[in-house]
Amino acid sequence: MTNEHDELERLRRGIALVLAAIGLAAAVAAVLGFPLLFVVGRGPSNVGRFAGIFRSEVSAWLHHDGWALSGAAWFYIALALAAFASAALVAGLIRARGARALALISGPAVLVLMLGPLLQYVVGDGWSNYSDVGDDFLPHSPVFAVVLLTLWCLALAPKLAREHRRPRKVGTPEGTSRGVRGAGRHRM
Results as ranks from 00 to 15, higher is better:
31 V>R: 07
31 V>N: 00
32 L>W: 07
33 G>T: 08
36 L>D: 02
39 V>F: 10
39 V>S: 13
40 V>S: 11
40 V>A: 09
41 G>F: 09
44 P>M: 09
44 P>C: 03
45 S>E: 15
45 S>A: 15
45 S>D: 15
46 N>R: 10
46 N>T: 13
47 V>T: 12
47 V>Q: 12
48 G>A: 15
48 G>F: 12
48 G>K: 13
49 R>Y: 14
50 F>P: 00
51 A>C: 00
51 A>M: 12
52 G>Y: 07
52 G>F: 04
53 I>P: 00
53 I>C: 03
54 F>I: 05
55 R>G: 09
55 R>E: 15
55 R>S: 14
56 S>V: 06
56 S>N: 14
56 S>G: 11
56 S>A: 12
57 E>V: 04
57 E>C: 08
58 V>M: 11
60 A>G: 08
60 A>S: 13
60 A>D: 15
61 W>S: 05
61 W>P: 03
62 L>T: 08
62 L>F: 10
62 L>Q: 12
63 H>Y: 06
64 H>N: 08
64 H>R: 02
64 H>F: 11
66 G>S: 02
67 W>I: 08
67 W>D: 01
68 A>L: 07
71 G>A: 02
71 G>L: 04
71 G>R: 03
72 A>F: 05
72 A>D: 05
73 A>T: 11
74 W>I: 03
75 F>D: 09
75 F>V: 12
76 Y>R: 03
76 Y>K: 02
78 A>K: 02
79 L>M: 14
81 L>K: 07
81 L>S: 09
83 A>N: 01
83 A>K: 05
84 F>V: 11
84 F>M: 10
84 F>Y: 14
84 F>T: 04
85 A>P: 01
85 A>M: 06
86 S>N: 10
86 S>H: 03
86 S>R: 05
87 A>P: 07
88 A>H: 06
89 L>A: 10
89 L>I: 09
89 L>W: 10
89 L>C: 10
90 V>S: 01
91 A>T: 03
92 G>F: 05
94 I>S: 09
94 I>H: 11
95 R>Q: 13
95 R>S: 13
97 R>N: 11
97 R>F: 00
98 G>D: 08
99 A>D: 02
99 A>E: 06
100 R>W: 13
101 A>E: 07
102 L>N: 07
104 L>M: 13
104 L>V: 09
105 I>T: 04
105 I>Y: 02
105 I>F: 05
106 S>Y: 07
106 S>A: 15
107 G>S: 09
107 G>A: 10
108 P>S: 08
109 A>V: 03
109 A>E: 04
111 L>E: 02
111 L>M: 12
111 L>P: 08
115 L>C: 10
115 L>W: 04
116 G>C: 06
116 G>T: 09
117 P>G: 04
117 P>L: 02
117 P>F: 01
117 P>Y: 05
